[in-house]
Amino acid sequence: MSRLLDKTIVLLICLALLVRGPVDAALVSWLCVAVTLACLGEVVPERMRPALPLALLACGALAPGAGAYLPLAAYDITRPWEDTRGRWRRPPSVAAGALLVCACVAGDAATAPLRLLCCGVACLLSARATQAERAAASNRQTRDALQGRALELAAKNRDLMDRQEYEVELATLAERARIAREIHDNVGHLLTRATLQVEALRVVHAGEPRVQADFADVGATLGEALDTVRASVHALREDSVDLSVQMRKVVADVTAAAPLAVELDVRCDRVPPNACSCLLAVTREALSNVLRHAAAERVVLRCVEHPGFFQLEVTDDGTARSAGGTAAGGAAASTGMGLASMRERVEALGGTFWAGPCADGGWRVFVTVPKGGAGRGAA
């Protein structure tokens, strides 16, 4: 927009010079040509732009009527353009300057100095516009770089916040588990011992009905307290088990010193402690096998909760191991201790286990644990 304004100013200067002399049809025709070339200079590809002012200069050197509009050509002849490699180029300055001087002198010799002065003003306007465009381009680059840096810092900040929340949640769960252990190992045992002592005293004072009633009340109170402690321990233990957090910790521990990209997707709400332990153990063993045997670069780990069971799937893109896997209850089982251990853990909860090569390469471990079987062996 600023260049169109500059060209309008240059055109008005050219018209002001024409007022001093007679105006004929040739001048009007060349006015149309000059305006057309000036407008085309704003829409044609940059590599074609220098040809337009050079054509006007050539016309000015040959046709006296075209010389009145040489400042428009001078404006465009000093304007650089950007080539395909991103470098700024200008028309040959010496040849263009010589052609411009010849065109100015070819007309009326009396007005040649004034034409040259107007051409100099046009060149200054063009140089000012070019400097402004480069400054604007530099400002845009700086703005884009700052915005990119801001987005990068925002992403890092989100990662740090997520990491902080993860660490806080992990510490909270660990503290709940510790409290549950302390209550179970200390308070629970003390209450159990007190209950046994009360029962022993009841046996000793078997012939005293009044004492028996008092001991029965104390025993009932201790039994109620013990049941309350057990319920609290179970609640704390269940609250201390968050499969998503534990999975992330297992992945971080196993891949701490290995260049292995793990895509983790855990979509489970509340997982019983024994099922959570089983799934974590299978995940740890599967990732360890990937690091030791698969030569993989990427692992996809998904754990999904279905209405009747929990499903775990670990798939890598490495080389398939020679030991094949079969579904639980199948014909031949793998001889590897790791696979056998995983199978035993899963089948102990009534689940199914399969491990073997994928059709498109890599290795796949597939586990399902029924929700009914997940409650077996709960503490």
Rank of each mutant, 00 (worst) to 15 (best):
R143P: 00
V204Y: 06
A132E: 08
E42P: 00
R178A: 14
Q246F: 10
L160H: 13
L280N: 03
V10N: 05
V168W: 11
D227F: 02
L125I: 03
R298G: 04
M247T: 15
L11G: 02
P64H: 04
L243I: 03
V33A: 05
W354G: 00
E305W: 07
R302F: 02
R128H: 06
V262Y: 09
A206I: 09
A332I: 11
S322G: 15
L37N: 02
A106W: 06
H184S: 15
A129F: 01
T130W: 15
P209C: 02
L260I: 09
G356L: 01
S2V: 11
D242T: 05
R343A: 14
A258E: 14
P357G: 02
Q164V: 10
A132D: 07
L114Y: 00
G375H: 14
A155G: 09
L17M: 11
L70G: 00
D265M: 08
T8F: 14
T195I: 01
V121N: 00
E305A: 08
A225E: 06
R89T: 02
E82V: 15
A155C: 11
V254S: 10
E297F: 03
S126G: 08
L27Y: 06
V33H: 01
L27R: 14
L279I: 06
A281S: 15
T255Y: 04
